[in-house]
Computed example of a mutant assay.
Amino acid sequence: MPTTPVPGDRTPRRVLQVGPLKPSLSETLRSTYDALELPDDQQARTEFLDRFGADVGAVVTSGRTGVDAELMAALPNLGAVVNFGVGYDTTDVDAARERGVGVSNTPDVLTDCVADTAVGLLIDTMRQFSAADRYLRAGHWPVDGNYPLTRQVSNRKVGIIGLGRIGSAIAKRLNAFGCTISYHNRHVVDDSPYEYVGSPVELARRVDVLVIAAAGGSGTAKLVGADVLEALGPDGYLINIARGSVVDEPALVRALTEGRIAGAGLDVFAEEPEVPVELLRLDNVVLLPHVGSGTVETRAAMEALTLRNLEEFLANGRLVTPVVEPAVRV
Score class of each variant (00 low, 15 high):
Asn185Thr: 09
Leu122Ala: 03
His184Lys: 02
Ser168Gly: 15
Val153Trp: 00
Glu195Ala: 14
Arg165Tyr: 08
Ile160Lys: 01
Asp144Arg: 13
Trp141Asp: 07
Lys157Cys: 11
Asp144Phe: 12
Asn155Cys: 13
Gly178Glu: 05
Ile170Gln: 03
Val201Pro: 01
Ile123Thr: 02
Lys157Leu: 12
Ser154Gln: 12
Val143Ile: 14
Gly164Leu: 08
Gly164Met: 09
Asp124Tyr: 00
Pro142Thr: 04
Gly159Leu: 03
Leu122Arg: 02
Pro200Met: 08
Tyr183Trp: 09
Ala138Trp: 07
Phe129Thr: 07
Asp124Glu: 07
Leu122Phe: 02
Val189Met: 09
Val197Asn: 00
Gln152Asn: 14
Leu136Arg: 09
Ile160Phe: 03
Gly159Gln: 02
Ala131His: 02
Ile160Gln: 01
His187Asp: 11
Pro148Ile: 07
Ser199Pro: 02
Arg186Phe: 08
Arg186Met: 06
Val197Phe: 05
His140Gly: 07
Asp144Val: 08
Arg134Ala: 12
Thr180Gly: 12
Val201Cys: 06
Ser154Gly: 10
Leu122Thr: 10
Leu121Gln: 02
Ala132Gln: 10
Lys157Ile: 14
His187Trp: 12
Val188Asn: 10
Val143His: 09
Ala176Val: 15
Pro148Thr: 06
Met126Gly: 08
Leu149Lys: 10
Gly162Asn: 05
His140Phe: 10
Thr125Ile: 01
Lys157Gln: 15
Gly139Met: 05
Leu174Arg: 08
Gly167Ile: 06
Met126Cys: 09
Asp144Gly: 13
Gly162Asp: 08
Lys157Arg: 15
Val153Cys: 02
Pro148Lys: 01
Ser130Glu: 11
Ser154Glu: 13
Ile170Tyr: 05
Val158Asn: 03
Glu195Lys: 15
Val197Pro: 02
Asp133Lys: 10
